[in-house]
């Protein structure tokens, strides 16, 4: 305790100038924090184990793959686009990373290869959106089908297996190992979140992404090379998906070409929406998506703690996504009207 006595007037003054505006800002601009806290409280009431350190870490760990992809998706959506192909990019990249690993038994080469393939596929999306100026929804709808089909062809409809001996001795540590009791997956995820927040708030590139999403014409007339920015955005999302694919391989040890990464794009978009990013572009936060993905994943565990039959999980998820977005809309409208 400091020697100072509690000064009531000072506290009041502080709340008036700093405290309330801060809380108001949280409530209006970052209300995903509120949804998360609510959900955690519900979970805690339902099950005393729920809010333990281990369960939280577990939550973040299980959301890492889609979480990393959702970070890229946030950027894509802020720029006023959408990427439906991330699930297929993950499958294709994971399958080829597995093959690479089987041939080389090298972590470094596998990571590099995964990042390369991911970026390349993202670039294909970016090229058609940026240069050919086709709507991103259509481009990525097409590549979603195409990349998946290539993957399934590669696996001849079945899984691509990893050399089990090498997997256990080399790769598995990454997917299951821990550092300071926290899994590598969590470290990597949080590190990428930090990097992405930095990229989006402290660099010119981040600023351009917002500008393009908010007013493309004005962005262009301010000298921003809009086509190129779009290519970068999709390539970077590809790169992140490539990293997620590599982690996926280390975690699961095989890649089922038909189902790997299936409907990841939907979960990623849901996380972005819960995180408060505007679907119309121009507005949003990386940290929002981080909370969004945790909310999305804690729904499952909260529901099981509440002993809700698993069949209705998705129904409740759907309701919560809609509810979160509606809440933001209401709060936003109030902000505009005030």
């Amino acid at each position: 305790m400091s020697g100072k006595t509690f000064d009531k007037a000072k506290f009041k003054e502080y709340m008036k100038t700093k405290g309330w505006p801060f809380l108001k800002n949280i409530l209006i601009n970052h209300n995903y924090v509120v949804s998360l806290i609510l959900l955690l409280i519900i979970g805690r009431i339902a099950s005393p184990n729920f809010l333990s350190f281990a369960s939280l870490i577990n939550l973040i760990k299980s959301s890492a793959f889609i979480g990393i992809i959702a970070l890229g998706m946030t950027m894509v959506i802020i720029s006023g686009n959408i990427d439906l192909s991330v699930g297929s990019i993950l499958a294709f990249t994971a399958a080829n990373t597995a093959i690479m690993f089987n041939n080389t038994h090298s972590i470094l080469l596998s990571v590099g290869y995964a990042m390369f393939i991911g970026t390349l596929l993202g670039f294909v999306n970016g090229f058609f959106v940026g240069k050919a100026k086709v709507a991103s929804f259509i481009v990525t709808l097409a590549t979603m089908a195409a990349f998946r089909s290539l993957t399934v062809q590669q696996g001849q409809g079945g899984p691509i297996l990893i050399d089990q001996e090498a997997y256990y001795s080399i790769l598995r540590t990454i997917g299951y190992g821990t550092f300071l009791k926290i899994p590598y997956l969590v470290w990597i995820f949080v590190l990428i979140v930090g990097l992405m927040i930095f990229l989006m708030t402290k660099t010119k590139f981040g600023r351009y992404v917002y500008a393009v999403g908010s007013n493309e014409k004005a962005a262009k007339l301010s000298g921003i090379n809009v086509d190129r920015i779009k290519i970068y955005i999709f390539s970077l999302t590809g790169l992140l998906t490539g990293i997620a694919a590599f982690l996926y391989v280390t975690r699961f040890g095989s890649v089922d070409t038909a189902t790997a990464g299936k409907s990841y794009e939907l979960d990623a978009i849901a996380a972005v929406a819960i995180g408060g990013t505007s679907m119309a572009g121009g507005k949003g936060f990386i940290q929002g998506t981080f909370f969004g993905i945790i909310v999305l994943y804690s729904i499952d565990s909260v529901l099981s703690a509440l002993r809700v039959p698993a069949f209705v999980n998705d129904l409740i998820k759907g309701i919560l996504i809609l509810g979160a977005v509606l809440l933001q809309k209401v709060l936003n409208n109030r902000k505009v009207n005030n």
């Binding site: 917002y210 999403g213 004005a218 007339l221 921003i224 505007s278 121009g282």
Partner: peptide, 15 residues
């Protein structure tokens, strides 16, 4: 053509 509506005044000046 000019205003980037989701950005604040500072960022609009800097772009």
């Amino acid at each position: 053509r000019s205003i980037i509506k989701d950005m604040n005044i500072l960022n609009n000046v800097s772009i």
